[in-house]
Every structure is written in C-alpha cells, then in structure tokens.
Amino acid sequence: MVSASAVLIIIITFIFPPIGVYAVAGCGADLLVNVCLTILGVFPGHIHAFYLEYVYYDRREQAREGRFTAGRAPGIYSERVQQGGGGYGTIAQNT
C-alpha cells in the first residue's frame, strides 16, 4: 500500500533527487553519492534516488508483515534505508 508520504517523496525526487534521498536516508554517504551522480547528469541521480526509495519502502513493508531480510541491499550505505526506517529496536509481534 502506498502512503501519501511515499507519493510526496517520489514527486520531490522527480524534481530534485538529493532532497528525496535526504528525506529517506538522511545526511550521509548515500546523499553524497547522489549529489555527485546528480552533478554528473540527470539520469544517474534519479536512478540512484529511486533505488534508495524502493529499498527503503520495500524493507519497511516487509518489517510490517513480519518478514525480515537477512542480506544487505548492494550500493546502500545507510542503515536507516537497509532496515526500512525500523532502527535497532524490537518489533512487537502480533499474536
């Protein structure tokens, strides 16, 4: 299910990719990589930003369903994106 925040981030990313990456991954290596790719050309920055957002929302949805991905997504340095924004805390299981 797509939330309103996801749609808003996608629209922002379409206009200027580094803002979308900052909203999902925060200030870190992923943002630096995206700024460099955006400077190199329009498409590399967009592709990287949409990839980050896809992984972030996919991992977030998997965590909500109780499925956890063991492997790391390649090319992503942010733990926030790797865990779908879940952080290091515990998730309560529905019984």
Rank of each mutant, 00 (worst) to 15 (best):
R60T: 04
Y22W: 12
L37I: 13
I15A: 14
A70T: 09
G66Q: 06
Y57V: 06
D30A: 06
A92K: 11
P74R: 07
Y54R: 10
A92V: 15
Q62S: 12
H46W: 11
R67F: 09
Q83V: 03
L31I: 03
G28H: 04
L52V: 05
F50V: 04
I11D: 07
G71W: 05
A6T: 15
T90I: 07
I12F: 12
S78A: 05
L32F: 07
V42W: 12
G28I: 11
F68R: 13
Q83L: 13
C27S: 07
D58I: 07
T13A: 06
G20M: 08
G28T: 06
P44C: 05
M1I: 05
G20W: 00
L52K: 01
Y22Q: 09
C36R: 15
G20L: 11
I39N: 02
G85E: 00
I10H: 10
T95A: 13
R80Q: 03
R67T: 12
G85I: 02
Y56P: 02
V24G: 05
I11S: 08
D30L: 10
T38W: 06
M1L: 07
A23L: 15
A23E: 03
P18Q: 06
Y56L: 04
I15T: 11
E65C: 09
A29K: 08
L32R: 12
I12R: 10
I9K: 06
I11Y: 05
V7R: 14
L31W: 03
Y57Q: 05
G41H: 05
